[in-house]
Amino acid sequence: MSGTSGQRRLAEVWPLFGLSIRTPRLILTPVRDEQLPGLVDAILAGIHAPSVMPFGVPWTDAPRDTLIRESLKYQWSLRAALSPDDWTISFAVQHEGRVIGVQDLSARRFSLLRRVSTGSWLTSAEQGKGLGKEMRAAVLQFAFDHLGAESAASGAAAWNRASLGVSAALGYEPNGSALIEARPGQADEHQLLLLAREDFRRPEWTAAVEGVEAVRPILAGA
């Protein structure tokens, strides 16, 4: 069985593996097992300076072997836990044939609330090129235009101007703040953000989405 026909067959039994979102520079697909080595390489290449912690959970502080193992377990756990009322899709972000980061899209009680949440990371070498904005705009188009979402939540550490700048450029508005323990004994303020569908500042391009018909019943319950 060829690789292409094998992927087609896998998408028949697990439709999320047939989903893809294309932008001018990126391809986003739910993380597949064959992408995991590239994903690990991107993580190990470094995501942020050791002196700061941009994530609500300090997962990048783990020792190398633990970081690799837990990153794989996290990806597999998302598939096992998926249901129409509680899901997270972890999209592998590919640029010029390489995995350079992850863009998460998640929802709780989506059929009722019609709200999604986003989170993401890019390997350090690819930051500052506008790719973070491009990949978030891609999943927002997917959520608003193909799943029927009405709003999108996000957030970032108050010091993380790059992430907050992406949010502002896309139309998000402040929605309160929260104090979290970013690292043991270290409190950080996180800015909470909310984007209404009608306030989304769309890019000049439109994302090309494939495989949405098969995944819509799984994610939106319809």
Results as ranks from 00 to 15, higher is better:
Met1Tyr: 10
Ser2Cys: 12
Gly3Arg: 15
Thr4Asn: 12
Thr4His: 14
Gly6Leu: 15
Gln7Pro: 08
Arg8Ile: 09
Arg8Ser: 12
Arg8Ala: 14
Arg8Asn: 14
Arg9Cys: 09
Glu12Pro: 07
Glu12Ser: 10
Leu19Met: 06
Pro24Gln: 08
Arg25Tyr: 05
Leu26Ala: 07
Val31Gly: 01
Val31His: 00
Val31Gln: 01
Gln35Leu: 09
Pro37Asn: 06
Leu39Cys: 08
Asp41Asn: 11
Ala42His: 05
Ala42Leu: 06
Ile43Tyr: 04
Ala45Tyr: 07
Gly46Trp: 02
Ile47Met: 05
His48Trp: 01
His48Lys: 12
Pro50Val: 11
Val52Arg: 06
Val52Ile: 12
Pro54Leu: 06
Val57Glu: 13
Asp61Trp: 15
Asp61Ser: 11
Pro63Gly: 07
Ser71Val: 06
Lys73Pro: 03
Leu78Lys: 13
Arg79Tyr: 11
Ala81His: 09
Leu82Val: 01
Leu82Phe: 03
Ser83His: 07
Ser83Val: 01
Ser83Thr: 08
Asp86Tyr: 12
Asp86Ile: 02
Asp86Gly: 10
Phe91Val: 05
Glu96Ala: 13
Glu96Met: 10
Arg98Ile: 07
Val99Trp: 14
Val102Ser: 01
Gln103Tyr: 03
Gln103Met: 05
Ser106Asn: 09
Ser106Glu: 12
Arg108His: 14
Leu112Trp: 15
Val116Cys: 03
Thr118Glu: 09
Ser120Thr: 13
Trp121Ile: 01
Leu122Ser: 06
Leu122Gly: 05
Ser124Asp: 15
Gln127Phe: 12
Gly132Met: 01
Lys133Leu: 00
Glu134Leu: 04
Met135Ala: 02
Ala138Arg: 02
Ala138Met: 07
Val139Asn: 02
Val139Arg: 00
Leu140Cys: 04
Phe142Gly: 00
Phe142Ala: 01
Ala143Thr: 04
His146Ile: 02
Leu147Met: 06
Leu147Trp: 04
Ala153Phe: 08
Gly155Met: 02
Ala156Asn: 04
Ala157Glu: 08
Asn160Ala: 08
Ser163Cys: 06
Leu164Cys: 07
Tyr172Arg: 01
Glu173Ala: 09
Pro174Phe: 08
Ser177His: 15
Ile180Thr: 10
Ile180Met: 11
Arg183Asn: 02
Arg183Gln: 02
Gly185Cys: 05
Asp188Tyr: 07
Glu189Ala: 13
His190Arg: 15
Leu193Lys: 04
Leu194Arg: 14
Asp199Phe: 00
Asp199His: 10
Arg201His: 08
Arg202Phe: 00
Val209Asp: 07
Glu210Ala: 14
Val212Lys: 03
Val212Gln: 12
Arg216Thr: 04
Gly221Arg: 06
Gly221Glu: 08
Gly221Lys: 06
